[in-house]
Write a protein that binds this DNA or RNA. Structure first.
Lengths: 148, 148
DNA sequence: TTACGTTTGCAAATGATATTCATTTAGCTT
DNA sequence: AAGCTAAATGAATATCATTTGCAAACGTAA
């Protein structure tokens, strides 16, 4: 499993930053990795709390999510209203999202040409891109059919 | 000026929805139209409050911004952390944004090919797009030069 | 101009996220 | 292994943007 590799790379990251290797942090990594879908932090907090065993406090979850973002294992992928949806991206290839505003379904996609065109735009503006997010909001196939 | 036309179309919109035509709402439209740049609501509230004359309360600004979004004159264009940046789009052609994470500068761009590719992706997934947002975060030319 | 439903302003509620602070813990250093 | 120090944790509290409840003011149609 690549979770172990991820954890060891996360360990390197922490050491390098002078941070400490704690049980809590790695537990949260495990939880997020096993959650298996897009998540909001509050959702994650509740889910972790409902699991038996050791729990991390809300604050620690928030703090660790931040760390994991800096580390690059997590990405803020959807911003809808005042909700922020995260995704565990470690090891996954880059992609964008279609979001059904009716049922909340999230569909991932990747179009190389779009990425290339973005690079082109950045070059044209002498802009150095760090990251980007493309969200397409609409109605998914199923919801469209239900409307009939 | 097309602000007048905009206001009369907004008036139609309100009537059609059974809402009322109030001075406050149109004052806010004027303010936003004359603000001339991307804005956050709190920024707008402060700006309106600093102007002499009649002011609209914070709640009314928030409520009217919502209405204007539904109406289509305003768009949420950038979501960064817990900030939401809006733009007055009435009459403007559609475009996306480059955001400098160093100085906050916002650069608008439009690439037809990107739009087309998005439509293609949606078709491939039988997804009916309603709207989309492409944000490219990075470092602008000026900030890059300052780094030297 | 009356009558009724909507809008407004204010204050208070919310909800997500951040922070403070006292306590515990990780990871040196002897 | 024991001690030391800075960092991490949990709980409570603060903050920030945004929303809501409510009484008073206002817009509209008859």
């Amino acid at each position: 499993m690549q979770v172990d590799e991820l954890k060891s790379r996360f360990e390197q990251f922490l050491k390098q930053k002078g941070y400490k290797i704690t049980k809590g942090r790695f537990e949260i990594v495990d939880k997020i990795a096993s959650y298996g879908k897009h998540f909001e932090i509050e959702e994650l907090v509740r889910w972790i709390a409902n699991q038996n065993k050791t729990v991390a406090s809300r604050s620690t979850v928030y703090r660790t999510v931040r760390l994991l973002q800096d580390f690059g294992a997590i990405r803020e992928v959807i911003k809808l209203g005042n909700r922020t949806i995260y995704e565990f991206v470690a090891g996954k290839p880059h992609h964008e999202h279609l979001i059904c505003v009716e049922c909340g379904k999230i569909i991932e996609f990747y179009k190389d040409e779009i990425e290339e065109l973005q690079d082109k735009v950045c070059e044209e503006h002498s802009f150095t891109p760090l990251n980007h997010r493309l969200e397409i909001f609409g109605i998914c196939k199923d919801c469209m059919e239900k409307r009939t």
